[in-house]
């Protein structure tokens, strides 16, 4: 357990006045407040540090104790105990020092050790309410899983959460489930649960938002003479007419055959097919002869 320099955290001098500390705390809290930095772990950590520093430095008694023992905080309790005994002896049993804090959450070990949990608020003012810790989880799905809206039950910190996963959710997308994070402190609200979707694509389709892209091999003779082919779409096969003289790399758009549009039921993107004409290999003598004849016809 290391000593924590609360002055450094609040970026103030050891001689800082109460007003300086308040100003520094406000400034940093505005910068790192979790509501202003959603899903930012670093900011959340920093915000807790700032609050802890403020709990100590903004209350005269706490600050005095902190300043008095500083890096020798490990011996603070012994000194406090002997001081209390002395005071009891002198004043006939009156309680002194810190006491009855309890219930502190999200404080550092250093703080807990020195102040025993939540610090004294001095004048008996309202304890601050802090939102509970936000939880983060990652959900791995296949592209096929998110083609349709479906329900899943996740177990987060021992609790089952029934989750509806809307069709068309994006890889890397984060959804927030309010109130499913850690317990709040001082009567504050519960934190939120953030779920990041990691979507793996094991299909032949490439996805760009709602549109899908697919390369389709096209027989040379169909490309030249035209014809009908069957192609795979995400939800089945469709027949396509191929125009005579189709060039390699020709793109065809199949409207509404793409991926579902997120949270827009019944709406789909498009499927873009790119033809890749297959040139026959290992020609027979007869084929070579016929191709040569064709080539002469084209050049004559």
């Amino acid at each position: 357990m290391a000593f924590i320099d609360y002055y450094k955290i609040l970026e103030v001098d050891k001689k800082a006045t109460e007003a300086d500390i308040k100003k520094a705390y406000r400034k940093l809290a505005r910068k790192y407040h979790p509501d202003l930095n959603p899903n930012n772990k670093e900011a959340e950590k920093k915000f807790k540090e700032i609050n802890e520093a403020n709990e100590v430095l903004s209350h005269a008694e706490n600050r005095k104790k902190y300043d008095e023992y500083g890096e020798n905080w490990q011996h603070a309790e012994e000194f406090e105990k002997s001081k209390r005994q002395q005071q009891q002896y002198q004043s006939g049993g009156q309680q002194g020092g810190f006491g009855g804090f309890g219930g502190g959450e999200d404080y550092s070990d250093f703080f807990e050790s020195m102040f025993g949990g939540r610090a004294s608020r001095g004048g008996g003012g309202r304890s601050p309410q802090y939102k509970g810790q936000d939880f983060n989880a990652e959900l791995h799905l296949n592209l096929k899983d998110v083609y349709t809206t479906h329900k899943r039950t996740l177990t987060i910190n021992g609790k089952n959460i029934r989750l509806t996963i809307p069709a068309g959710v994006e890889n890397g997308q984060i959804i927030k489930i309010a109130g499913h994070g850690g317990e709040g402190a001082g009567g504050g609200p519960k934190g939120d649960l953030y779920i990041t979707f990691s979507i793996e694509n094991h299909t032949d389709f490439k996805r760009d938002k709602d549109n899908l892209y697919e390369n389709v091999d096209l027989d040379l003779y169909i490309a030249i003479l035209g014809g009908e082919i069957t192609v795979n779409t995400f939800d089945g096969k469709v027949k396509l007419k191929v125009a005579p003289g189709t060039q390699n790399g020709t793109k065809v758009k199949l409207k509404d055959k793409g991926f579902p549009v997120y949270k827009k039921e019944g709406q789909f993107g498009d499927l873009y097919i790119t033809y890749q004409i297959k040139i026959p290999k290992n020609l027979t003598e007869k084929e070579k002869e016929l191709f040569t004849e064709l080539s002469k016809l084209r050049t004559s």
Partner: peptide, 13 residues
């Protein structure tokens, strides 16, 4: 952030 996510996914293509 949403746009950045989509651009990243498009880059993967």
């Amino acid at each position: 952030q949403t746009e950045l996510l989509l651009v990243r996914n498009r880059l993967q293509l």
